[in-house]
Write a protein that binds this DNA or RNA. Structure first.
Lengths: 107, 107
DNA sequence: ATTTATTATCGTAATATTGCAATATATAAA
DNA sequence: TTTATATATTGCAATATTACGATAATAAAT
C-alpha cells in the first residue's frame, strides 16, 4: 500500500524509523556532511554545493528540520541551518546500544 | 520523480543512505529489536511476533538481508536469521564520527 | 510419493517519495 | 516604492515503497 502500519508499532520504533527515514537519502546525507564540514551554520550555499535545484534542496531541508535533525535561524534575508546535536546524539546512542548488545552474543 | 539521483553523490553517501533506508521502517526496527532480544538466531516466529502477514515479513527480511544488516542460514526446513554485527558496527561508527565532530563545534 | 511446515515470489492496489518548473513570500538595499 | 536576493510553496510527473492474497518452492516427515 505504500502505507506503513505505524499504529502496530511502539512509539520508540516509529520515532527511530522516522529519524532514520529523514537521513535515508543521499542528498540529505550530503547536506549533513556539508553542514559538518563548514561546522558552523549556513544557508543556500548548499544549493551551490549540490547538483539539485533550489526547490529540491529546500524540501530536503524541510524534512531534516521536521525530524529535528537540523534547525534554522533567520539571519537577515537568509536562513542559517545547523545540525541539532541532541538529535544526532540520540541516534548515536541508539546504535551504540545495539552494538553493545551484539558484543556479548554471537549468532 | 520518486527517483533518487544517486549518480550525483559519492559512493559513501549512497551506501549510508541505503543502510539507513533499510532500517527506516517501524516493522524493520521491530524485527531488529526482536532479533536483539532473542539474541541468537530465529526465523518465522517474527511472523507470530509482529502484526503483519507472512509475505510482508518475508519482504522486510529480504530488504534487511540485501542491505547486509541481517544474514540467514538454512537450518532444516526453516531459515535462521541473525543480525550482522559488522554492518551494525559500521553504522554505529558513522554516527559516532558525527557526534565526535559535533562535540568540538557548536552552532 | 504424499503430506506438512516453512519461506519466497508474483501480482496488484494504495500510498509515499523525489525532483523540478513556476510561482509566491520575505527581507534588505537602492 | 522598486528592485534584488533568499527561501518556501504549489502542482505536477515519474518512480518507489508497503502490504497482502494467491501461489510457488523447498525440505522434513509419514
Amino acid at each position: 500500500m505504500g502505507i506503513t502500519k505505524s499504529e502496530s508499532f511502539t512509539e520508540e520504533q516509529n520515532e527511530i524509523a522516522n529519524l532514520l527515514k529523514a537521513l535515508a537519502n543521499p542528498a540529505r546525507v550530503a547536506i549533513i556532511q556539508y553542514l559538518l564540514k563548514v561546522d558552523s551554520c549556513i544557508c543556500g550555499d548548499i544549493v551551490n554545493e549540490l547538483p539539485l535545484a533550489q526547490p529540491t534542496i529546500s524540501q530536503h531541508l524541510k524534512e531534516l528540520k521536521n525530524a529535528n535533525i537540523i534547525q534554522g535561524t533567520i539571519e537577515g534575508k537568509s536562513i542559517c541551518y545547523c545540525i541539532n546535536p541532541e538529535t544526532m546524539s540520540k541516534i548515536e546512542s541508539y546504535f551504540g546500544g545495539i552494538s553493545l548488545k551484539l558484543k556479548n552474543k554471537c549468532c
